[in-house]
Simulated assay, not measured.
Amino acid sequence: MSIILNNISKSYNKVKALDDISFEVKPGELFGLIGPDGAGKTTLFRILTTLLIQDGGKASVAGYDVQKQYKDIRNHVGYMPGRFSLYQDLTVEENLNFFATIFGTTIEENYDLIKDIYIQIEPFKARRAGKLSGGMKQKLALCCALIHKPKVLFLDEPTTGVDPVSRKEFWEMLKRLQQKDITILVSTPYMDEAELCDRIALITNGKILQINTPEAIIASFPKKIYKVRSSNTYQLIEDLRIYPDTHSAYPFGEYLHFTPKSEVFRSMDLTKYLAERHHKEIEVKETVATIEDTFMDLSKAHE
Rank of each mutant, 00 (worst) to 15 (best):
E195I: 09
L196W: 05
C197T: 05
D198M: 05
D198C: 04
D198N: 14
R199K: 15
A201V: 01
L202I: 03
T204I: 08
T204M: 00
N205L: 02
K207H: 03
I208P: 01
L209S: 03
Q210S: 13
N212I: 01
N212Q: 04
T213M: 08
I218M: 05
K223P: 05
I225F: 09
K227T: 11
T233I: 09
Y234P: 03
Y234H: 09
L236T: 10
R241H: 06
P244N: 10
T246Y: 02
H247L: 15
S248A: 13
S248H: 01
S248L: 14
S248G: 06
Y250K: 11
F258S: 01
K261R: 15
S262D: 15
S262V: 12
V264L: 12
V264M: 11
F265G: 05
F265Y: 14
R266I: 12
S267L: 13
S267F: 08
S267V: 14
L270V: 12
K272W: 13
K272R: 15
L274E: 08
A275R: 14
E276R: 12
R277M: 08
R277H: 11
H278D: 15
K280H: 12
K280G: 01
E283I: 11
V284Q: 06
K285S: 09
T287P: 12
T290F: 05
T294G: 10
T294W: 07
